[in-house]
């Protein structure tokens, strides 16, 4: 299992791992240009985008090399195939979160809450993405998530601007992080538990779907 997770990270997520230093540099530039406090709104967006991109890239690599057929003809339980992807996706998203938080921490910002929210969002997105991927395949997941995310993002922004035109959203997201930091006893744990519950539920669903999947 450890080797399979490592294989998944080093093969299917290789190009996404290459983006990690780039994201750290981008975060540092944003913090320097906008100020550390303002920049704390960005980890949520960045980590989510990177997690989505990494999932999509891995699914694309799978599809191109017909990896599902390769793995399903080996004496490897399908549940283990899914587990390797979920573990590698989790590790990758945590890495994204930590790497993006690092420039903010080094520049003196209270980046942990923002990084926590960003990582949580990334983990949740990874879980959902992989559940759809193992149930419906690469073509479906690439289309649904591409247009679905775009729709949600655009719709969300438009809706937010219509309902609350005067709100400074980057600041608000930073405030959410700060608020979470102010309630360390309960909220982060609840949020973390919620994200993990969602992730494991998606994992279980993906396992169920992949074990029953026919490879036409």
């Amino acid at each position: 299992m450890i080797f399979q997770t490592w294989s998944d990270l080093s093969l299917q997520h290789r190009s996404s791992l290459g983006l990690v230093p780039l994201a750290a540099v981008l975060m540092a530039v944003l913090a320097l240009v906008m100020g550390v406090h303002e920049a704390t709104a960005f980890p949520v967006v960045l980590v989510s985008m990177m997690a989505w991109g990494a999932g999509l890239r891995a699914a694309y690599e799978d599809d191109k090399a017909d990896t599902w057929t390769f793995l399903r003809t080996l004496p490897v339980p399908p549940a283990q195939v899914v587990a390797a992807r979920y573990l590698s996706g989790f590790l990758l998203t945590i890495t994204f979160g930590l790497t993006i938080a690092l420039p903010l921490i080094l520049l003196g910002g209270g980046a942990w809450p923002a990084a926590g929210v960003g990582t949580g969002a990334g983990v949740a997105l990874t879980g959902l993405f992989n559940a759809v991927y193992y149930r419906f395949g690469y073509r479906a997941v690439s289309t649904w998530f591409r247009y679905g995310l775009l729709l949600v993002a655009l719709g969300g922004v438009l809706l937010a601007r219509l309902i609350l035109p005067g709100v400074d959203w980057p600041l608000l997201l930073g405030e959410v992080g700060t608020w979470l930091a102010a309630n360390p006893a309960l909220m982060p744990w609840l949020a973390g538990a919620g994200v993990l519950a969602l992730y494991t539920t998606c994992w279980a669903y993906a396992t169920w779907a992949f074990c029953r999947k026919e490879l036409l």
Binding site: L11, Q12, R14, E61, K64, A65, D66, T67, T69, F70, T73, L74, P75, V76, P77
Partner: peptide, 21 residues
């Protein structure tokens, strides 16, 4: 299925190996 696959070698029309390996 798993016990069988341990003793089966399979080669398909499309060589299903990751391209970077």
């Amino acid at each position: 299925s798993l016990a069988i696959k341990r003793q089966v070698g399979y080669l398909g029309e499309r060589v299903a190996l990751p391209e970077s390996v």
